[in-house]
Amino acid sequence: MGNGKQIRGAQYADIAIALVLLAIGLGFTIIAYGHGLGSMRRIGAGAMPFLIGCALCLCSLICLFGALRSRIEVDVSPPLPVALVLIAVVAWALMVEPFGLVPATVVLMLIGTFAYGPIRWVSTSIVIAAMCVGCVALFIYGFRLPFTIFGG
């Protein structure tokens, strides 16, 4: 199946997800209880979350049994491009306020394009330049979003 590969531990991962959901459900229920359940007439800040937490525990338990019994096949993406996409967005988030929209966009697009294989410099440069001009025109001058172009 393409360039993705089936992970061998898929069933374990499925079980792990159910366990994580169960842990979240338990934690949620306990914190909710701490907010107070209140009375039937004036239910407390914790009442609805408490019910939700209990339901989440129950649901994740059933999912856990399901995961224990059945096999699942998954088609995962290779880790490097996934990591690159995540890094690209983090870079944008780190840069946009101090350095401005244009540098942040350039860096995001460079890393993001690299995630899809070697960069073809000519076409990529054109696309990035067009995006920068377009975004500045549309979002800064058009929608007046509070971005700076080059920081400051």
Binding site: A88, W92, L108, M109, Y116, S123, V127, M131
Partner: peptide, 8 residues
């Protein structure tokens, strides 16, 4: 090209 643009 498309996906980096969408990311922005």
């Amino acid at each position: 090209i498309l996906y980096p643009i969408m990311l922005v």
